[in-house]
């Protein structure tokens, strides 16, 4: 960052602002240490290779949720949308490789329709996002079950997809690298494009964004559509990983993506979020689950522990950490006499 040198507080400011995204990396490091001590087999390359794609799937879904949360919304239709895309891969794919392209296009299109409906109701008609997306999720789930009756839902997805998903590059599965690519793309869009900038502005203050002439409604609608496309991408990858995803494959993705966004340090009131820390949070959550699995915790206990970790994550991330760091700096650091003078001189000229 290029700033005039005589200003001492710019580094401090970026420290305070950036601090919200740090805990997830610490948590991941902590997880690795804990695993290394108690469940070293969870860190074996086989184990890592097995869980990385699932972490990426959660990461991609979490990025969709992050986009929605950034504009001050929330999306509870993730399970429905993901199941829908997965079931389309079975139904349209018919287990034949030549159908993969067609199935993917239809899966993305169907998800986009769900996102568009959400967006129009929330961004256009200003309905409550919580209730709208919950209702939309219920409708989509209904559609999925009806559709699942017409096709043989126990069938596998086309083999080509499964094969491709199983391919490894640099030691890790294709899905993982796709997750990284999506993260980079979302980051670039947010940081380096006009649309991304306007999007950030809406998240930070929708009223002011409207005043300065940003088409707030349009961007809100697009956020839900874009998010739905990411859910579909996650679901297609997941379908490939599972081979026989079934009709309720999305059910696990109601809380987990939201948890990842929160642990990733996003502000739940909108505006601030980091794609990289959100994706990392996705990896962390899956890693945690895997570790508990290797440690042999019963499923019931796993669920409890999982919930506790999410709550603990909320306690140490986002707005609270920013406040905490600010507090620490205030108590630790009293400016020296010269610093006070430095701050005052430009004002007294």
């Amino acid at each position: 960052m290029t700033t005039p040198r005589q200003q001492p507080s710019s580094a401090l400011t970026s420290l305070v602002v950036g601090s919200r995204f740090v805990p997830v990396y610490i948590a991941l490091a902590l997880l690795v240490v804990v695993a290394w001590i108690w469940a070293p087999q969870a860190l074996s390359s086989i184990s890592l290779r097995a869980i990385a794609p699932y972490g990426a799937v959660l990461g991609i879904a979490a990025l969709g949720q992050m986009i929605v949360i950034m504009i001050g919304g929330i999306d509870l239709s993730v399970p429905g949308t993901m199941s829908l895309a997965a079931v389309i891969m079975i139904g349209v794919g018919h287990g034949a490789d030549e159908n993969i392209g067609k199935a993917m296009v239809i899966a993305f299109a169907a998800a986009a329709v769900v996102g568009l409906a959400n967006g129009l109701l929330i961004g256009g008609l200003k309905l409550n996002p919580l209730i709208v997306t919950l209702a939309a999720g219920s409708i989509v789930t209904g559609v999925v079950f009806r559709y699942a009756e017409k096709i043989t839902v126990q069938n596998p997805v086309p083999e080509g997809l499964t094969d491709w998903v199983a391919k490894r590059y640099f030691g890790l599965g294709a899905v993982f690298w796709i997750g990284i690519a999506v993260t980079v793309i979302v980051s670039v869009i947010l940081r380096y494009t006009v649309a991304g900038r306007r999007f950030q502005a809406i998240g930070a203050n929708p009223v002011a964004a409207n005043v300065v002439g940003v088409r707030v409604n349009w961007y809100q609608i697009m956020a839900y559509v874009f998010a739905a496309l990411l859910y579909a991408a996650a679901a297609i990858a997941l379908a490939g990983l599972l081979r026989r995803p079934g009709a309720s494959v999305g059910n696990e993705y109601l809380l987990a993506p939201i948890a990842a966004v929160v642990i990733g340090g996003a502000s739940l009131t909108g505006g601030l979020a980091s794609p990289f820390s959100t994706f990392t949070a996705g990896l962390f959550l899956i890693g945690l689950r895997q570790m508990m699995l290797t440690m042999g915790l019963p499923t019931a206990l796993q669920n409890v522990a999982f919930g506790l970790v999410i709550i603990a994550g909320m306690l140490v991330s986002g707005d609270r950490i920013t406040k905490g760091v600010e507090q620490l700096l205030r108590e630790r650091r009293r400016p020296t006499r010269t610093e006070v003078e430095e701050i005052l001189t430009p004002m007294n000229q």
Partner: peptide, 21 residues
């Protein structure tokens, strides 16, 4: 605070929001 500025965003982002083109 409520109608003009995006408080959590920086000076640069706030200044150029209307002239991104």
């Amino acid at each position: 605070k409520h109608q003009a500025l995006m408080g959590v965003l920086g000076v640069r982002v706030n200044a150029t929001i209307q002239s991104l083109n």
